[in-house]
Amino acid sequence: MSSNDIPGPDSETALRVKALESLLLEKGLIETSAIDELIDMFENRLGPWNGAKVVARAWTDPDYKDRLLQNGTAAIAEMGFEAVQGEEMVVVENTAEVHNLVVCTLCSCFPWATLGLPPVWYKSAPFRARAARDPRGVLDEFGTQIGADTELRVWDSNAEVRYMVLPERPVRTEGLNAEALAELVTRDSMIGVSKVASPD
């Protein structure tokens, strides 16, 4: 599924949404302000910049990293990022020996609190199908190299448990503080389809 297949503003689908929203408004079951607030939250307040702060702190604060790997939900809440629907967060660490990859084969479960809404490719049939069967092929497609001896673990998310990858800290970042490190961390590295690149 590519974004070219998403119905446009004049589509039947868009009209169905309008019909539903106007009925629910008329019945007093929703308020326009609440709908706008929800949209603003998903567009502007939830996003991978939150997860990047978590990762950067884990790279610079060993005690925090321990707490994060022990109890992801609590350690992420410590940073002010609460689960949107009460799901448990599990953080898995990438090392030279182990590479972790996150998928949701059944739908598109994603750690909203730290990464926001998933990209279309994460929700697409090719990724959902193949991450489970041929994860090394998926990494290849993303241009990500891991050693032949590196163990590859695939985490299938569900409604109750959401996974996030703690990527490896890149080389040549010794002098950087947490804020500068967070700038380097990408959404894809926290899904595990890519690594964090060293600064230029």
Binding site: S2, I6, V17, I35, V120
Partner: peptide, 25 residues
């Protein structure tokens, strides 16, 4: 796997409203 560079959070306004309606319900 088809990827899109600089993908927006929502491609169409109706998507944002669909998400918000479901969350509100």
């Amino acid at each position: 796997i088809v990827r899109e560079a600089d993908e927006p959070v929502f491609h169409e306004e109706w998507e944002a409203h669909t998400l918000a309606l479901a969350r509100a319900m």
